[in-house]
Design a protein around this nucleic acid. Sequence first.
DNA 1: TACCAGTCGTTGGCGCGGCCAACACCCGTG
DNA 2: CACGGGTGTTGGCCGCGCCAACGACTGGTA
Lengths: 154, 154
Amino acid sequence: MPASSRAPARVKDRPTWLVSRLFARSSGLLADGFEAHGGGLRSYHYRLLAALEEWGPASQADLGRATGIDRSDVTAVLSELESRRLVGRSADPGHGRRNIVTITAAGAEQLRELDAVVDGVQERLLSPLTAAQRRQFVALMSKLLADGSAPPTG
Amino acid sequence: MPASSRAPARVKDRPTWLVSRLFARSSGLLADGFEAHGGGLRSYHYRLLAALEEWGPASQADLGRATGIDRSDVTAVLSELESRRLVGRSADPGHGRRNIVTITAAGAEQLRELDAVVDGVQERLLSPLTAAQRRQFVALMSKLLADGSAPPTG
DNA sequence: TACCAGTCGTTGGCGCGGCCAACACCCGTG
DNA sequence: CACGGGTGTTGGCCGCGCCAACGACTGGTA
């Protein structure tokens, strides 16, 4: 199963490689969980459902901006969610083109299931670490991401 | 530039999300570096060149196993490397179907350039961390990956 | 009022990394 | 000889992340 744990020495110890492998493991666990308990939904669906529950009904463009998902992908994924009745699309009165997307009760229910799946994956992903190490790990990643695109201090 | 730093609260603090964002940043830096100084090569090319230099001439199937890259992708990427004269393919005498792939002098030269690019990316990726924190971070990731697919101890 | 800039949803496409299936070919073994 | 297995190749699929372009629509300004 561990497809590409193998690599040349100059590759396999570099942080970028470790990040890549860790992402592979993380996304693999998520994919497994979603497949098993998510009814074939993927991370895009989860992100959009979560955004709708957190911020309430919104237009597709707003959803895209809120989640960082491209407008075109939002359209496609919402269509899938809509066909499963997890989401509703209705025209914005007073603004012809815009849609108002709402999460349905079934959607909120599905979101809770996905939340449980995602929580379980966190646990499985971090299981080799102690609680203190997990906090360290999260703190280090947060620091990398926060200061990563740091302004030129000028 | 930071496309999807945005996310619902229930998403954006989870380790799997941080890993995903960190991977996005890491692979973005690598793509930028390869585009700028790698002549349009990508990570597959780098992995294969590195494997060839580390383990010497090998068949395509062996390269695939050594790097975790699928045989079909190895074929395609080697063709690109061959057309740039970074790699040579020759028939294995005494084994009709098998090829023996060799890195050329130009390939070794290109590999050194890519090494420099990749080293630079490590530095940029980890720049927010102190040396001690970098060691911690690498150690934590290694632990996650080593024990991640741990056998059931039974 | 007429025009222009900008937004919105949608379609269609691309790239990368990672896969799988099928095929023709070749090998070693029984 | 027949067979199983490795080998290289072609072609396709998926998920995630993008981009371009279009018609429909809006708001602001001349």
